[in-house]
């Protein structure tokens, strides 16, 4: 690991100030991606600013139309929560391994926007709102590309608000080695329509409009069985070709709908 200057932020404003003052600073939440990346010398930063001391970024609160999860809420806490949609809890319970779930955070995960991370599927699949220190961003606008989001410099995720679905399910085909999602599909029946979000398959989480309209008319696994996504532009690696991933999108979509009931 290259050396850096470790700083602990006492508040959001303090974090923003420290980040602004650093020549090449980065934020540390759960650290489950950042620390291994630094350890392998795949990245270097002048400053690492630890957010964990900012208490009001952690916790789960249900309100009328949904639930708001603080950015520093750990995966294990979401997995164990009765307040979040069951599909979201199940998704969180499948991230990494128990030790990763005891450290990793929602905000850290979606800010990193790993194409194979699980959370982006839920954020997009539930049409959540990403709240930052500056504004609120709709999920459809948040994930913009491979490891890219709509976050600006100095912008820090504070929480994510998930609307309550009528039905929702998540099915994941894990990468056999890393256990990240090779293909993960989140399907949700919302008050204003159906959303189907796919992670792992492409460079960035994406929705499948054809599946959404099919499910809007007929919420059943059969409705998506005949719908396939194009393999063009999907990820291809040692563990699965683009064609295989495209096939798995259909299989996982069926299973997500079945899991939703």
């Amino acid at each position: 690991m290259y050396n850096f200057n470790y700083q602990r932020a006492s508040s959001l404003d303090d974090a923003v100030a420290k980040l602004g003052a650093a020549s090449d600073g980065t934020l540390l939440a759960g650290g489950q991606t950042l620390i291994p990346t630094l350890k392998q010398r795949l990245a270097s930063h002048s400053d690492v600013i630890d957010l964990s001391g900012i208490g009001d970024l952690r916790g789960i609160s249900a309100d009328g139309g949904g639930v708001t999860v603080g950015a520093l809420t750990r995966h294990a806490e979401v997995a164990a929560s009765a307040d979040v949609p069951a599909a979201l809890a199940a998704l969180a319970d499948g991230i990494g391994d128990p030790q990763v779930r005891n450290c990793g955070t929602l905000g850290g995960s979606i800010a990193n926007a790993d194409p194979a991370a699980d959370y982006p599927a839920a954020v997009l699949g539930l049409g959540a709102t990403v709240n930052t220190n500056l504004r609120s961003i709709a999920a459809d606008d948040f994930f913009t590309g491979l490891f890219e989001t709509a976050l600006n410099d100095g912008e820090i995720i504070t929480s994510v608000t998930f609307p309550t679905p009528q039905k929702a399910g998540y099915a994941k085909f894990p990468n056999p080695a890393s256990r990240y999602a090779m293909v993960g599909v989140f399907a949700a029946q919302m008050g204003d329509g159906v959303r189907v979000a796919v992670t792992g398959a492409g460079p960035c989480v994406f929705r499948v409009a054809e599946m959404e309209s099919a499910l809007a008319g007929n919420w059943s696994a059969d409705a998506v069985a005949g719908i396939s996504v194009s393999a063009d532009g999907l990820n291809s690696d040692l563990h699965g070709s683009a064609e295989y991933r495209a096939h798995l999108v259909t299989v996982m979509a069926k299973r997500a709908v079945a899991a939703a009931g």
Binding site: Y6, R8, L28, G31, Q32, I35, P36, K39, Q40, V48, D50, S52, A76, D97, P98, Q99, V100, N102, C103, S178
Partner: peptide
């Protein structure tokens, strides 16, 4: 390992099992 996969480094921090190779010493202040 270097990638937070193997778990040989698991300890308990404030009662939860965590990978001590994926946490800075200063984080455990």
């Amino acid at each position: 390992c270097d990638t937070s996969q193997c778990g040989a480094c698991v300890v308990h921090v404030n009662g939860d099992s965590m990978k001590s190779c994926s946490m800075l010493a200063l984080q455990a202040e």
